[in-house]
Each structure stands twice: as C-alpha cells, then as structure tokens.
Design a protein around this nucleic acid. Structure first.
Length: 504
RNA sequence: GGUCGCGUGGCCGAGUGGUUAGGCAGAGGUCUGCAAAACCUUGUACAGCGGUUCGAAUCCGCUCGCGACCUCCA
C-alpha cells in the first residue's frame, strides 16, 4: 500500500488525505437498511457506492473491517396518531406476523438484492435487536457522563449541554443550535418531557400496544432512533475508527446524533472521515411513492413500469451508477439507462476481445505502450481522488479503441510489448470485476453449457463461412438472420466471423 | 421560513482559472457480397446579468430555475 488516497470529509467539507488510525488497516461503518419494507433503489445506489469504496480500499492493500448494520428495531413512526410506535411492530400487526419474521423477510430480500447487484457482504453485519444490552449500556454511560436525563421512563440526550461544552453538535451538518430550536416542530411527541426541543430520545418507554420491547433500568421499552449505530460501531470498531458512511439524508439528524451519543458515552467523536453518498433522482425529482415518481429494482429489471421502455439488467444499472460520482445526485431516466447499456456492452465486448489477444511482438516500448500505461496509471489516480469512478471509467474507455484495434489488426502486434499487453489484461480485469464489481452477464453461468454453446456456434459459423465462400448468400444470410433473431450477434471480421450474445 | 447543494453540448455525466473528459445519439470515411460489428475523423457547451483577472464555463455578487435536508428515509 503506497498510494495516497484523498477522501472528501463531510466534517471539514474538503478533501483530505486518508490516514488510517492503524497503519494498513481500515475500520469502516456504513448505516445499513431498516428492514420494514423492500429495499428502495436509492438504498441500492448508496450501498453500491460504498461497495466500490470497500473494494478499492481492499484492492490497494488495506485490511478492511467493514461493518454494515441491519436495523430491525427502534425507529419511531413520526406521523403515527397512536403515538410512539416501532415501525417493525406496526407492520407486524398489519400482516399478522411476528416482528422478527417481518424483519427476517425484508432482510432476506435485502441480501438477495445486494447479491443481484454484486455488492460484497460486509465483514460484520450486526442487527440492532442482537445488541440491546450494548445499547442499554451505552445509555447508562451517557447518563453517567451527564449528557442525558431520564423523564418518566424515557431517557433523552441533552443536546444543549453537549453543544455548550464541546461545540460539536451541528458541526457535521452545518447547523447551529439556535436554528435547531427555531426549526423544531411543536408537534413532536413527548415534547413536554424534553428540556430542549432538539434533545432526542435514546431510550423510549413503550406503551401497551408496543410489541418489541425490552427490560431496562428505566422502563420496559426500546432504544432510541439512532442509538444502534453508535452502540454497534463502538462494539466492533472501537471508540474511534476511520470511516463512517451513509446516505446524505442521514447527515442530520441521524449522524449528528450518533456523534453526540458516541461522545456522550466515550468522550470522543467516533469517526475520522464522514462520507455521504448523494441521492438518486428519477426524471429530475426525488423518488417518492406519493406522486408515482418511483420504481423498484425489480420493475427496473423487468421493465414493468411506465418509467422505462424495457428492462435493464442489474449490471447495466450498476454501470449506470458508476458513471456518476457518489457525491453527486444521479438522475435515472430511460434514455440514460439505454446509453449505459450500450456503454456497458461495449466495455465488456472490449474486455472479451482483450482476453483473446496473445500476440505482442514489440521488442521495446512503443507509443502504444506509453499511451496504454499512462491511461491505466491515470485510472488509478482517479480512484485515489475521492473514488472518482466516472473519471476512472472514462480512462478505461480510452483504452477500448486500442484493444479493438489490436483485435482487428488496425494496430499490429508488433506495436505493443508483451509486458504492456499483460498489464492491460490484468488491470482491466481488476478494474471491471474487482474494483467496479461488474459481472459479465452475457456468458452463461453453467460452464458445460457455455462450452457446448461455443462449440455449436463455431460449427454454425463454419457452415456459414463455407456458404459465403461459395457465394451462397441466401444460406449465409439465413444463418445470420436466424442467429440474430435468437439473440446471437454475428460479427464478420478480417479473420472470419465471431459472435456475441446480445442483451434483449 | 432556515441550512446546504446544483444549473455543462440532442441526452446522461466528469472537470478545471488559459491545454481532449467519457458514454449514448448525429455526420463523414475505412472494411464488407450486402449489412452489422469494429476502426478512423468530426460538429454542437458551460442558466442569465454584472464584477475580479492579461485571461472564467471554472473565483465573487445578484437574478432566475431546480433539488436535498430541517420529519422515518441511502
């Protein structure tokens, strides 16, 4: 590991050189999903962004402990008229299921979707319900340290005291306490129990209708809205760790409160670098079920939605997301996805062409060598600069014409050295599959079947070639047209025909 | 209302004080029996108005438009 990586830190609002607390190791915590409904496409973008960050840090040689939680308890339903209510519990009553059954169902769905998008599993995936003692303990510590107070069985974090003593509250999200006072809604639950409007609950006394509740020194209840992340990050990564990530919408209040809680319990802020992924928009607006401006991942794959003209495969969607920077909003649209699909196919096609290249005869480095090596170096430099996937991707595309030219003879094998060709193969493969986490969807999963298919197609193309030699255009065109209809693209080149499977 | 961010060519989307982003689409060419694919060449740009500067799409101000957060939310 001798690369210098720069990361944009939300706390400082600028790019900083990444220096891990322990040389060669990275502790990274990312806020995972709340499993009370199906994963939202925007969630997927966020987890894909951090997947690439995780992959890149590992790729450059760090030993990374990546913790991504599952929240299966705790969050309040803000607009519920029956008062404080746990999301999971509410859903459970509606569906007549055990709360944990609901959580498990959606957790499974979440995992399936992550696998579909080729997102690597984290090193540790702790669940909030599995860490109630840790959370109770944290509340105790915060109370002991004087940063919280109890009121009628619930415990509240004292933001005013924390802000006055440290000046830290609001720093991450750029807020000042006076604004928070002005902003606070007067219809917040249990408002009267709080000393200050911006104080927030870290333990909530449950009413009778509440299903998920645990014993604690203060009441039979459940942990506060943001406590699980503080408790679990501390347990698995320590009081201080390197990277904390999440969606931009978590900056306030979730992460702000996490910082407060961690400080309240451990007397130190938890993470050195706070990273925030930006929102996924659709047709220029935030996705929202209320106005129909939304699409599920499944609808995107199948094309069963008025927002798309056809289905797009998971890897096309992943590629689409790679084309923008994680800190920018990304606007999903049908035309943008079509463009991404073409681009994805072009990249994968070039990679396949590359794997077939084995001739490199230049004795000494040529202009082609220089161009290729510089471009590959640049691609890594782009990733070093706050994980700039769109720029790195652009560099990869600059090398595509070189590959295709070598494949079709426009550039001869004598114009590239074996060393460069080898490096090109390794680096391109690393980037596409290991760093960007793309998969080749065109090749079958079953190796035997794939091999059979390849042999059969070779035969068919040989027959067609014979027909062409005999100027039997009827037969040759028939073969080509039927194969096209079957989804196999025939590509005539100088050294005979080759084929590839078309998506859709 | 408060806080923050954005506005780039037909579309998506990077980026920077003076030098090519990239993808998709378009145009011309090479190759081909025809076509496709591939390759080569290529046009269109930085919301508007002021200011700073030798020079700004890039910095500053204002205007307009859009978005996010402030409430569970990636």
């Amino acid at each position: 590991m001798n690369r210098s990586i720069k990361i944009y830190n939300t706390v400082s609002k600028e790019k900083e050189e990444f220096k891990p607390i322990v040389e060669g190791r990275v502790g990274m915590y990312v806020c995972g999903p709340t499993v009370y409904s199906d994963v939202h496409l925007g969630n997927c973008r966020s987890f894909i962004s951090f997947d690439i960050i995780y992959r890149y840090l590992k790729y450059v040689g760090f030993k990374v402990r990546y913790v991504r939680n599952i929240t299966d308890v705790g969050h309040l339903e803000g607009d519920a008229d029956s008062g404080a209510e746990d999301k999971i519990s509410k859903k459970a009553r509606l569906e007549q299921l055990e709360p944990m059954e609901v959580a498990q169902k959606y957790a499974n769905g979440f995992h399936d979707m992550m696998r579909t998008f080729n997102v690597l599993p984290p090193s540790i995936e702790p669940r909030a319900t599995g860490h109630i003692p840790e959370q109770v303990n944290m509340v105790k510590k915060i109370l002991d340290n004087g940063y919280a107070y109890e009121a009628d069985g619930s415990v509240y974090f004292d933001t005013l005291k924390f802000a006055k003593e440290t000046g830290l509250y609001g720093k991450l999200s750029g807020r000042v306490l006076d604004d928070l006072v002005a902003e606070s809604r007067d219809n917040l639950k249990k408002q009267d129990q709080k000393r200050h409007p911006s104080d927030f609950a870290i333990w909530i006394k449950a009413d009778d209708s509440h299903i998920m509740k645990w014993d604690s020194p203060w009441s039979l209840g459940f942990p506060g809205w943001h406590l699980e992340c503080s408790a679990m990050s501390t347990k698995y990564l320590g009081d201080r760790f390197d990277i904390h990530g999440g969606g931009a919408d978590l900056t306030f209040p979730h992460h702000e409160n996490e910082i407060a809680q961690n400080f309240g319990a451990c007397k130190s802020t938890p993470a050195n670098y706070w990273l925030h992924g930006n929102m996924l928009l659709m047709n220029g607006r935030k996705m929202a079920k209320s106005d129909g401006n939304t699409i599920t991942p499944e609808q995107l794959f199948t094309g069963d939605s008025p927002h798309v003209s056809k289905g797009y495969s998971p890897m096309v969607v992943r590629f689409f997301m790679l084309q923008s920077h994680y800190r920018s909003t990304l606007d999903l649209s049908d035309t943008a996805l079509q463009a991404a699909e073409k681009g994805y196919q072009r990249l994968m096609e070039a990679y396949k062409n590359l794997t077939k290249l084995d001739e490199a005869k230049a004795p000494t480095p040529t202009d082609v060598d220089t161009k290729v090596n510089q471009t590959l170096d640049q691609a890594f430099n782009e990733m070093d600069d706050d994980f700039n996937t769109p720029k790195a991707l652009a560099r990869l595309f600059e090398v595509v014409p070189v590959i295709n030219s070598l494949a079709n003879g426009t550039i001869s094998a004598s114009e590239i050295t074996a060393d460069t060709l080898k490096r090109l193969k390794v680096v391109l493969s690393d980037f596409i599959f290991h760093i960007f986490g793309l998969k080749d969807e065109t090749s079958g999963n079953d190796n035997t079947q794939t091999a059979v298919l390849e042999d059969v197609l070779e035969l068919v193309l040989e027959i067609r070639q014979n027909a062409r030699t005999n100027k039997d255009w009827t037969t040759s065109d028939l073969i080509r047209d039927k194969l096209t209809a079957a989804g196999v693209l025939v590509k005539d080149g100088k050294d005979g025909a080759s084929w590839s499977i078309k998506n859709n």
